[in-house]
Nucleic acid binder design. Structure first.
Lengths: 183, 183
DNA sequence: ACCAAGTGAGACATAAATGTCTCACACAAG
DNA sequence: CTTGTGTGAGACATTTATGTCTCACTTGGT
């Protein structure tokens, strides 16, 4: 009977990531609920996006925790992180693009935390000699978001099997497309 | 005196890629013209997006041509393509996300052409032994779009220098983040 | 200097989305 | 069965964006 807030947010993210101009009515229908109900849970479009942002940050931090990115070789940590990020991928896909140009009250400080942890991971990899040093941690971080996003979109579109999500992203991010002699 | 259509479209892409819900008025201001003038050139939001799509496809095909992707080693071709794609990057960044869920009249067939050419490039690389075969051409294609997008965004945001655009993208796409023995 | 074409600013009507409300109904707990 | 909570559907007013128009002004060409 009662609406599952999380499920509504996921549906909203899935829709909005590919049609950012979607109406509140469309969001409600995509989530399988009435517009009035959607409005009872989220005061307006802003509130909805905020909730999406909050949930995304929470899930992303949970993924960072679950992947234990401080432990072991950095490349293994990245691999675990990609796998752990899959559930949050559609969410990230929406929020990475919808920057809203950080107008108004400034963006959620959670983003800065995520960035910091991710950058730290890549930096650690560089210091340990696992990652190359000619690609800046900031760019690797950005590329990570971008590939997660692309992966989520490719899976949602049926171009990549959901089971291949982690492998495709982690392999490309870590090893690249070029065939190397050491493999 | 006369408005530069191309410049307006670029400004629109730059804005819309980060705030897809931007108003026609905001677009006009971002382009430095009046709302009435914007309306004289593009009948409405739909027409604007269509024009954006058209221009993007044209520039992307021009980039494919300029990079002569059929010639030489596939990895070199990819490198040339990334460089040639830089001008169209903000445009791509917007259109890759704004899929509009291909409702209505179906998407521009130009996208299919682009995809086909790009996929052919990656497939050629695999057949020649330059690219690994465990990453599907479709995924490499998707990742290419995603990284171009991320790169455009990172540059626009000042996180990556414009001069590093090509290098960062091509190196990550081809070689990955991991440090390999052969380099 | 003159003219023509194109523009910006603003007024305006229309269309569309938003936010609020009511009401009937389903469902779960008691 | 009765009660209470939460829901869907729809009506409604309000806000917001859109599309059209006019008019004064700038600019480039003649």
């Amino acid at each position: 009977m009662s609406v599952d807030r999380t499920q509504v947010l996921r549906a909203a993210a899935a829709l909005l990531s590919r049609k950012a101009t979607a109406t509140m009515d469309e969001v409600a229908r995509a989530a399988g609920i009435g517009r009035a109900t959607l409005h009872r849970h989220f005061a307006g479009r802003d509130a909805l996006v905020r909730a999406l942002e909050q949930m995304c940050i929470e899930e992303a931090e949970a993924a960072l925790d679950a992947a234990r990115i401080e432990e072991g070789p950095a490349d293994e940590a990245v691999r675990r992180l990609v796998t752990a990020s899959q559930p949050a991928a559609p969410l990230l896909s929406f929020l990475v693009t919808e920057n809203q140009l950080f107008e108004g009250d400034g963006q959620n400080e959670g983003w800065a935390r995520l960035d910091a942890r991710l950058v730290a991971l890549f930096r650690r990899g560089q210091e340990e000699g696992t990652f190359r040093i000619d690609l800046s941690p900031a760019w690797l971080c950005e590329a990570f978001y971008g590939l997660i996003s692309s992966g989520a979109w490719a899976v949602a579109d049926g171009r990549v099997a959901a089971n291949d999500f982690s492998y495709m992203i982690a392999e490309l991010l870590l090893g690249g497309a070029r065939r190397s002699v050491e493999k």
